[in-house]
Design a protein around this nucleic acid. Structure first.
Lengths: 228, 228
DNA sequence: AACATAAGTATTGTTCAACAATTCGACAAG
DNA sequence: CTTGTCGAATTGTTGAACAATACTTATGTT
């Protein structure tokens, strides 16, 4: 009997992807994607009645979804006034990059062969998309790159934090008028950092990463200053 | 006209302390405290009907509170089965200490005079409580100490992460039979680390901290192995 | 006795309708 | 131009209802 179980053992890994589908969570998934794609603009209010009617769910269920996204800092819940798509201040951007420096610098010190392979894939995807002038894809490849970098830490919780953090940053990206000017310089720098890590040059890699993040923050701040 | 506005300008800072009291959040506060104090045991199921009746709130409101605490990883939501007080595995403990190493080591590198003062207060509270054999207070002082340490990073988000992380660790502490044996050694080590930081010996401080966390993790794992 | 199956119960998931509480804009009064 | 008041619109919260799922107990078969 047990011999038959061995065939099924591999499935246990995917088990959590089955049961975890309550309506509220699926609603949250939909809204999260819409926000990430810029379908909802920062500052926009999300009406319970309108969205509830549009998705065909009750207000209570929708409110549960709102709570989830508020906790992820994608929505902002103001008492008796509703939920709004988060508007990041320059202080928020500064804080996000403080966290990125902590997590990603630590990741560089934990570099491993398998982890670097995942980064390499993201780099090549980004380079390919850049050659074909698909800058939206360059952006997503860049996000995958930094997720892979963060994963070097080997911590589920830091991965979650990084994912949430990059989702917040997307709120800023959508405000920028010219995505190419922001993403273009970092295609090459992703490659540079990758090769330094692959060569075991962690010292140089760390310096490159810090300079990388400083530049990215400065560029973002520059593009973000006008309308705060 | 604008000159009159200057008087009010200082109030904007306190604005967030006004509205923040919805029933669901207050319920979450109560439950969070109960969990922290070990009133609810890890693994215990929290019945919607029972707790809703005890607190005098409707199921819908209570469920919103459950969502909040589930997202903080204090409760675990299993579909169609209810919410349970989280039971941490040894893998969880290992992950928590991975995150602590990243955050706290980074904090050591950002040490500043004002931040160290807050740590000194926590150290002295802990030493006082230890002299008077109040080991529960030693535990809370220790938590305050590490929160103050984390605050050296100067990041709101890292502070939040640290607070959540220490709340999770409390779930483990309650399983231990003898709190004294766990907390006692670290009263002196908190002082040691503090003085190294105050003296600007960041190199030594970092080594001490890493060794500190390694020992704490090992001790916790040892006490935690029997019953998972 | 062991095991599978089926019925029944309890609990959660979701919706709906209602009302209280709060915000916001408009308009009037000073 | 400020202040006060009214009313519409929206959120906050409740309670009840029903569906969907999990747990328990009883039942029947081998």
């Amino acid at each position: 009997m047990i011999s038959h179980m061995d065939d099924v053992a591999g499935l246990e890994h995917d088990r959590d992807r089955l049961g975890r589908s309550s309506t509220a969570e699926r609603v949250a998934d939909i809204l999260r994607e819409r926000i990430a794609q810029g379908f909802f603009s920062p500052g926009q209010r999300l009406s319970e009645e309108a969205i509830g009617a549009a998705l065909g769910v009750s207000r209570n269920t929708l409110r549960e979804a709102f709570r989830l996204l508020s906790h992820e800092r994608l929505l902002e819940h103001r008492l008796n006034r509703g939920v709004f798509v988060r508007v990041l201040s320059t202080d928020d951007v500064a804080d996000l990059y403080r966290v990125r420096r902590v997590i990603e610098v630590s990741a560089v010190r934990h570099a491993s062969a398998e982890g670097i392979a995942a980064m390499r894939e993201a780099v090549e995807d980004g380079e390919r998309a850049a050659r074909e002038n698909r800058w939206r894809e360059v952006g997503t490849a860049n996000i995958r790159y930094h997720q892979a970098l963060s994963r070097l830490n080997g911590s589920q919780r830091l991965d979650d934090l990084m994912r949430q953090l990059l989702a917040e940053l997307r709120l800023v990206f959508h405000v920028m008028r010219n995505p190419r000017s922001f993403h273009e310089p970092f295609v090459a720098r992703n490659r540079t950092l990758l090769e330094l890590l692959a060569a075991g040059e962690t010292e140089k890699a760390e310096r490159e990463l810090v300079s990388y993040l400083d530049d990215a923050e400065a560029l973002l701040m520059e593009a973000y200053r006008p309308q705060p």
